[in-house]
Measured scan of single mutants.
Amino acid sequence: DVEPGKFYKGVVTRIEKYGASINLNEQVRGLLRPRDMISLRLENLNVGDEIIVQAIDVRPEKREIDFKYIP
């Protein structure tokens, strides 16, 4: 289970102007929005990149997770 405040290694699977889709595994994925990137710009991400993200909002009833990137 993903817990708010914990850090996870994820893989960038899609990049859109509203954010990047991050997969932690086949069943768990979430969104990294541009506003939640401290020192990383969306255009510097590539599909397949592995990054460390922090879960900031977990809504299991909607199967949604928001991530934050902290270098």
Rank of each mutant, 00 (worst) to 15 (best):
L45K: 02
L31Q: 06
M37D: 06
A55V: 15
F7S: 06
E50D: 08
I22Q: 01
I52G: 00
R33D: 04
E26P: 14
P34R: 09
K6F: 07
I22T: 00
I56A: 06
R41P: 04
E26V: 09
R14P: 00
E61Y: 09
K6R: 13
V58P: 03
F7Q: 03
I70L: 10
F7V: 05
E3V: 15
V53F: 04
R59W: 07
G48R: 01
E50A: 09
P71H: 09
L45G: 00
I22F: 06
E26A: 14
R14V: 08
Q27S: 14
R29P: 03
T13H: 08
E61W: 10
N44I: 06
I15H: 01
R14S: 12
Q27V: 13
Y8Q: 00
V53D: 00
R29H: 13
I22V: 10
R29F: 13
E43G: 07
R14L: 08
D36Y: 07
V58T: 05
V11F: 08
D49F: 06
A55G: 01
R63V: 07
D49P: 00
R41C: 10
R35M: 10
T13A: 08
R33L: 06
D1S: 14
K6Q: 08
V2E: 04
V58S: 05
L42N: 01
D49R: 01
I22Y: 02
Y8L: 03
K62G: 08
K17P: 14
F7E: 02
V58Q: 03
E3T: 13
A55T: 05
E64W: 13
I56G: 05
V28R: 04
E26I: 12
L31D: 03
E61D: 13
K17R: 13
G19C: 08
G48I: 01
R14N: 09
G5F: 08
I65H: 04
D1W: 15
L42C: 06
I51P: 00
V53E: 00
V12D: 01
G30T: 01
I65L: 08
D66A: 11
D1G: 14
N44E: 15
A20E: 02
M37E: 03
R35W: 09
S39F: 13
G48W: 04
R41I: 09
D36V: 05
A20G: 02
G30E: 03
I51R: 00
Q54F: 14
R63A: 13
G5A: 03
R63F: 13
R59F: 06
N46T: 14
E3Y: 12
I22L: 03
E26R: 12
D57M: 14
L32A: 01
D49H: 03
Q27M: 12
Q54W: 11
I52Y: 11
R35F: 07
R41T: 13
R14I: 07
I70K: 05
V11R: 10
Y8T: 00
P34N: 06
V53L: 07
L24E: 01
E61R: 06
D57H: 14
V58E: 03
F67C: 06
I15M: 03
V47E: 05
I70R: 06
G48D: 05
M37K: 02
Q54H: 04
I51L: 09
I56T: 08
V53T: 00
R35S: 12
G10Y: 04
R29Q: 15
Q54K: 08
N44G: 08
N44P: 02
E50K: 10
R63S: 13
L45Y: 01
E3C: 11
E50F: 15
D49W: 06
Y18H: 15
I65F: 07
L31V: 10
D36Q: 04
N25G: 10
E3N: 06
N25D: 10
Y69K: 01
P4V: 15
N25A: 09
L31I: 13
V2C: 08
I38E: 10
I51G: 02
E43F: 08
F67T: 02
K9F: 08
R59D: 10
R41A: 12
A55P: 03
K17L: 11
E16T: 15
G10D: 01
I51V: 06
I51H: 00
K62H: 10
N23L: 14
V28T: 12
V53C: 07
P4N: 10
V47I: 13
P60N: 10
L24G: 01
G30H: 03
R29T: 14
G10V: 08
L24Y: 01
L40Q: 05
N23E: 15
N23F: 12
M37A: 08
V12P: 04
G19Y: 11
L45D: 00
I70D: 13
I65T: 04
G10N: 01
D36C: 09
V28H: 11
I22H: 02
V12F: 02
A55I: 14
T13C: 09
F67I: 03
I70F: 12
I70A: 10
R63I: 08
Q54A: 05
E16N: 15
V47D: 01
L45W: 01
I38Y: 11
N23M: 15
P34F: 09
Q27R: 13
E61V: 07
L40M: 09
I15T: 03
Y18L: 08
I15P: 00
E64Q: 12
D66K: 12
G30Q: 03
L32Q: 02
I15Y: 00
A20K: 01
R29D: 09
A55K: 00
E3K: 14
Y69T: 02
L42H: 02
K6T: 06
I52P: 01
V2F: 11
E64P: 03
K6H: 08
N25C: 10
Q54Y: 12
P71E: 06
I56P: 01
Q54E: 05
G19F: 10
G30S: 01
P71L: 08
P60K: 11
L42T: 03
D66H: 12
I56H: 06
F67D: 02
I38Q: 10
V11L: 09
R29K: 13
L40P: 01
K62I: 09
D49S: 04
A55S: 04
R29N: 12
R33V: 04
M37F: 04
V58D: 04
R14M: 10
I65A: 07
L31H: 05
R41V: 10
G48M: 03
N46M: 13
I52A: 03
D1Q: 13
L45N: 00
G5R: 03
E43P: 04
V53N: 00
V53R: 00
E43M: 07
K9D: 01
R63D: 14
L40S: 06
K62E: 11
L45S: 00
L40E: 05
R33I: 06
R63G: 15
I38W: 07
E43A: 12
I38S: 10
K9N: 05
S39P: 15
P71T: 07
D57S: 15
E64T: 10
E43Y: 09
L45H: 01
V12Q: 00
V28W: 15
K9Y: 08
L42F: 07
P60L: 10
Q27C: 14
Y8E: 00
I38D: 10
S21K: 09
D66L: 15
I52L: 11
I52E: 05
V2I: 15
I15C: 06
I56Y: 13
G19S: 05
V12Y: 15
I70G: 06
E26C: 13
N44M: 13
E3F: 12
E43T: 08
V47F: 01
G5P: 05
Q54D: 00
I56Q: 05
E3I: 15
N46A: 14
K17T: 12
L42I: 10
M37Y: 03
V47C: 06
G10E: 01
I52H: 04
L24F: 04
P4C: 12
I15S: 01
P60Q: 09
N25I: 06
L24V: 10
K17I: 14
